[in-house]
Simulated assay, not measured.
Amino acid sequence: MKDLNVCIIAFPSTSESVNLYKVLKNKRYNVVMIQTPCTISAGCARSIEIKENDLENIINEIKTNNIEIRGIFRKALSESTRRYYYEELSF
């Protein structure tokens, strides 16, 4: 496993992802809106990719702004299969 220092935040709805994206961009976090990997969810098509260094602060923003999320996942690369996989984090 090769840790990529990137986390993915998945959401139950597109509106929740857009709300958090706006909050984080306004606070100058380095975030990217991406399509949700199908191994994480077949529901909402949007997720936010963040740097793992910002995780604690972003969790505080999620709680402060009452944004509903489906989960937070650490992105890693399997060296044996050369494929990405996602490990769900608890917070």
Results as ranks from 00 to 15, higher is better:
89 L>K: 07
89 L>I: 12
50 I>Y: 02
31 V>C: 09
37 P>G: 11
39 T>Y: 03
39 T>C: 11
58 I>M: 03
11 F>M: 07
5 N>Q: 04
53 N>D: 14
34 I>H: 01
80 S>G: 06
68 E>H: 13
64 T>C: 07
47 S>G: 01
16 E>V: 00
78 S>E: 10
49 E>R: 15
71 G>A: 06
32 V>D: 01
48 I>N: 09
4 L>I: 12
45 A>W: 00
31 V>Y: 00
80 S>W: 09
91 F>T: 09
21 Y>F: 14
22 K>S: 13
20 L>D: 15
88 E>V: 15
4 L>A: 05
72 I>M: 02
58 I>R: 00
57 N>S: 14
28 R>N: 15
58 I>E: 00
30 N>L: 13
29 Y>G: 05
21 Y>D: 07
64 T>S: 14
56 E>A: 04
51 K>C: 07
46 R>H: 11
2 K>Q: 15
80 S>Y: 06
57 N>F: 10
15 S>L: 12
84 Y>W: 09
28 R>C: 05
60 N>H: 13
52 E>R: 11
33 M>Q: 06
63 K>V: 09
77 L>M: 15
73 F>C: 04
5 N>P: 05
34 I>P: 02
41 S>F: 11
1 M>E: 10
17 S>F: 01
19 N>R: 00
19 N>G: 08
14 T>N: 15
51 K>R: 13
48 I>T: 07
43 G>H: 08
50 I>C: 05
34 I>G: 02
59 I>C: 08
16 E>Y: 09
79 E>P: 00
32 V>W: 03
72 I>S: 11
35 Q>I: 05
26 N>P: 04
52 E>H: 06
7 C>W: 01
25 K>F: 05
64 T>V: 00
14 T>I: 13
53 N>H: 09
17 S>P: 01
71 G>C: 06
77 L>Q: 09
80 S>H: 09
46 R>F: 11
32 V>Y: 03
40 I>N: 07
41 S>L: 07
48 I>S: 11
88 E>P: 07
18 V>H: 06
14 T>A: 14
49 E>V: 05
40 I>C: 09
61 E>N: 04
10 A>H: 07
28 R>G: 00
73 F>G: 10
34 I>W: 02
35 Q>H: 10
74 R>T: 10
27 K>H: 06
57 N>D: 13
69 I>V: 02
86 Y>N: 02
10 A>F: 03
13 S>P: 04
64 T>E: 15
54 D>C: 09
70 R>Y: 15
43 G>D: 10
51 K>Q: 12
36 T>S: 10
37 P>Q: 07
26 N>R: 14
36 T>W: 04
78 S>H: 11
19 N>Y: 05
62 I>N: 04
88 E>S: 10
13 S>F: 03
3 D>S: 14
75 K>W: 04
